[in-house]
């Protein structure tokens, strides 16, 4: 017998090209206030807190310690941090709630891409002996994946452009690009500006709660029916870049294939990656994919995966979805993937 655990609140900042007028904690804190206000909880009421962020984005070791100032960790709190996208912080919190050690959890993630050059920063997560010394940037690696898909006949440039256009046509007020974004020039061929995520800074937070506590805090909790994540081999040269077996396996373990979902929030920073994910997740044409616009509309590093779970949950909260899938990714060309299946109570 395991406990039912739900996402009961979601909040996010605007994603902005630059937030140089505020520090990380100044960017994050209003989001924490927002998400707590939605539940009426205070920091002291929260059983467990977990966050995701990256020192390499900040250019500073232990950068997450300053963000903790925004939480108000006094009296001391039960707290942890992953050097990963916040979706994995949510996973850690979900596990913690399953143990029964806590009934509520605050999960947050933030990232500022503006201080550095994120394309170059991400080269530092590649094999340090054979690949990182060549400085292949994140767009180049995604372009290799896109070309592999085109060669395999899975997509073509107009289809990719359509993904970009559809994503940015979202009515999400938090989306970074305002209005239509032209397909643009090649950044690294075959990927054009419109195939690449906007570079932005932002923060995201959710609150989890278990059992009856979830019903107390939220009119229609987004119950986490399944949550799983899987990693693949690191080297691009040993993987089939047109497929995402780790996504498929995580989805299977999360029970995504047991019944159809009506909505999917996919963390596909590059247009071609949506093609890979749709196939791996066997999403039919009737599934609403990325109504939020996804990472092509706003991609705050380290937070964009958690935002997918938050966006999917928010649709359930609002009664716009009954069963949604949320996905988060990490690493080059979808190396690591997480899948959550969320459901609302029957209406």
């Amino acid at each position: 017998m395991t406990r039912d655990i739900a996402v009961v609140a979601f909040a996010q900042s605007d994603t902005l090209r630059s937030t140089e007028e505020v520090s990380e904690v100044e960017m994050l804190m209003p989001v924490l206030h927002d998400v707590l206000a939605r539940t009426g909880l205070k920091t002291a009421d929260i059983g467990f807190t977990c966050s995701g962020s990256s020192d390499y984005l900040a250019g500073r070791a232990f950068s997450f310690t300053l963000a903790l100032d925004g939480v108000g960790a006094w009296p001391p709190i039960s707290e942890s941090h992953v050097e990963m996208d916040g979706a994995w912080a949510l996973y850690e919190a979900w596990v913690k709630l399953r143990t029964g050690d806590a009934d509520t959890a605050l999960v947050y993630a933030y990232g500022k891409s503006s201080p550095g050059s994120v394309r170059d920063v991400l080269t530092r997560q590649l094999d340090p002996y054979y690949v990182a010394p060549l400085w292949p940037d994140s767009v180049a690696l995604a372009a290799l994946q896109a070309q592999a898909l085109i060669d395999a006949g899975e997509t073509d440039e107009p289809a990719l452009a359509a993904i970009g256009a559809r994503s940015r046509a979202t009515d999400n007020p938090r989306a970074q690009p305002r209005g239509p974004v032209p397909r643009g020039d090649y950044v690294v061929r075959p990927l054009r500006t419109g195939d690449c995520p906007p570079i932005g800074d932002g923060a995201v937070a959710v609150v989890l709660a278990a059992g009856e506590r979830a019903r107390d805090l939220c009119g229609r909790p987004a119950w986490i029916r399944g949550l799983d994540h899987r990693i693949e081999a690191h080297s691009l040269g040993v993987r089939d870049l047109t497929d995402s077996p780790s996504t498929r396996l995580a989805a299977e373990r999360a029970g995504a294939f047991e019944r159809p979902v009506d909505t999917a929030e996919l963390h596909a920073p590059f247009s071609a990656q949506e093609v890979v994910l749709r196939r791996a997740l066997k999403l039919g044409g009737d599934v609403r994919v990325n109504p939020s616009g996804g990472a092509l509309a706003a991609n705050p590093m380290m937070a964009a995966g958690l935002a997918r779970i938050g966006e999917a949950a928010a649709r359930i909260h609002r009664g716009e979805s009954d069963r949604a899938l949320a996905h988060a990714t990490s690493g080059p060309c979808l190396q690591q993937n997480l899948v959550a299946v969320l459901e609302g109570d029957p209406r």
Binding site: L144, Q147, A148, D151, Y186, V188, R189, L241
Partner: peptide, 22 residues
């Protein structure tokens, strides 16, 4: 697979335009 890099960045193998390849 390949990808055409018309604007090489610092540290990359060639100074002029080139293709990334597997």
């Amino acid at each position: 697979t390949w990808a055409w890099n018309h604007a090489p960045r610092r540290g990359q193998p060639l100074a002029g335009p080139f293709a990334w390849v597997l």
